[in-house]
Simulated scan of single mutants.
Amino acid sequence: MHMSKQLIFEFLEDLSVNNSKEWMDKHRNRYEEAKNVLVELFDPILERIRLFDPRVVQPNARRALNRINNNLMFHPDRPTYKDHFGVGFGYGKGLADFYVHLGVDELLIAGGLWHPPSYKLKLLRQEIDYEGEKLAITLKEQLYPKGFRLYHEDKLKSSPKGYSNDHPHIELLKMKSLAVFKPLSRGDFYSEDFSELVFDSYKAIVPFLDFINTAIAEP
């Protein structure tokens, strides 16, 4: 499997320097080959995750694979194609989910809520206001010991409206995306223990996802 996993990065590296529809059309067989390797790898992982957590809606790894095309309607400056494969497992559209990112320069396991609309962010902040200690304990006891970090780049510079600067969870309240991530190496991905690493990470991240999804659930 190690040798076949290398096909993924060989394809992505070539794509990133030949980022055009013409090149992709000529090398579609390599794209399909890379996807097949990912499906073969992630199908058993997803099966195990679904046994552990039947709420996961993706029926198979092929459905969990994100599109490799960038959305150029809203971001016309982006390249035609992404330089990574993304695999996402979750509970439905608009909810916090679990994500594995396999890119040319960056590999990581992540989870959370990315750039939510303002009404969801408001609900999340209300939950942090009342139940922030629960979230803080989840981060400190379940996620940080497993190598996860809180994504800090997307946050307000000052306290959000309605919350004081001396709030005990002000740093969490400032977040505009609430997500955690764990950096990986290609060595982690090539390892025979990769499947175990993904499954253990999923188990660790579920209480974090549940906190977010409870906060933003439709009444």
Score class of each variant (00 low, 15 high):
6 Q>A: 09
7 L>H: 10
8 I>A: 00
9 F>S: 07
9 F>V: 02
10 E>K: 14
11 F>P: 03
12 L>P: 03
12 L>A: 08
16 S>M: 10
17 V>Y: 15
18 N>M: 02
21 K>I: 08
21 K>D: 09
22 E>A: 11
23 W>V: 04
23 W>P: 07
23 W>A: 01
28 R>L: 11
29 N>W: 08
30 R>N: 12
30 R>W: 11
33 E>N: 12
33 E>A: 12
34 A>N: 01
37 V>A: 02
37 V>Q: 04
38 L>P: 09
40 E>S: 10
41 L>T: 10
41 L>N: 00
44 P>L: 01
45 I>E: 00
45 I>V: 03
46 L>P: 10
49 I>F: 03
50 R>K: 10
50 R>M: 08
52 F>T: 09
53 D>R: 04
54 P>Y: 09
55 R>C: 03
55 R>H: 10
57 V>S: 12
57 V>W: 10
58 Q>V: 07
59 P>C: 01
60 N>M: 11
61 A>Q: 09
62 R>M: 11
63 R>D: 14
63 R>A: 15
63 R>Y: 13
64 A>W: 03
64 A>K: 02
64 A>Y: 06
64 A>G: 04
66 N>F: 15
67 R>V: 03
68 I>N: 03
69 N>I: 08
69 N>E: 10
71 N>K: 07
72 L>H: 01
72 L>S: 02
73 M>P: 00
73 M>Q: 14
74 F>P: 05
74 F>Q: 02
75 H>A: 11
76 P>C: 06
76 P>Y: 04
77 D>L: 12
78 R>S: 13
79 P>N: 04
80 T>M: 14
83 D>T: 10
83 D>I: 03
83 D>H: 08
83 D>M: 05
84 H>G: 06
85 F>Q: 09
86 G>D: 07
87 V>W: 03
88 G>D: 11
88 G>T: 14
88 G>W: 11
89 F>C: 09
90 G>R: 04
90 G>S: 00
91 Y>V: 07
91 Y>R: 08
92 G>S: 01
92 G>T: 03
92 G>F: 02
95 L>T: 15
96 A>G: 05
97 D>G: 15
100 V>N: 09
100 V>H: 10
101 H>Q: 06
103 G>S: 09
104 V>Y: 02
104 V>H: 08
104 V>D: 04
107 L>H: 12
112 G>E: 02
114 W>Q: 13
114 W>K: 14
115 H>W: 14
117 P>F: 04
117 P>S: 07
117 P>R: 08
118 S>D: 15
119 Y>R: 15
119 Y>P: 07
119 Y>G: 06
120 K>C: 08
120 K>W: 08
120 K>T: 08
121 L>W: 10
121 L>N: 11
123 L>Q: 14
123 L>N: 14
123 L>M: 15
124 L>F: 02
125 R>G: 12
126 Q>V: 11
127 E>Q: 15
128 I>V: 13
128 I>L: 07
129 D>A: 14
129 D>F: 14
132 G>F: 12
133 E>V: 00
133 E>A: 13
133 E>L: 14
134 K>F: 06
134 K>P: 00
135 L>E: 12
135 L>P: 11
135 L>D: 12
135 L>Q: 12
136 A>N: 13
136 A>H: 11
137 I>L: 11
137 I>P: 00
138 T>I: 15
138 T>D: 03
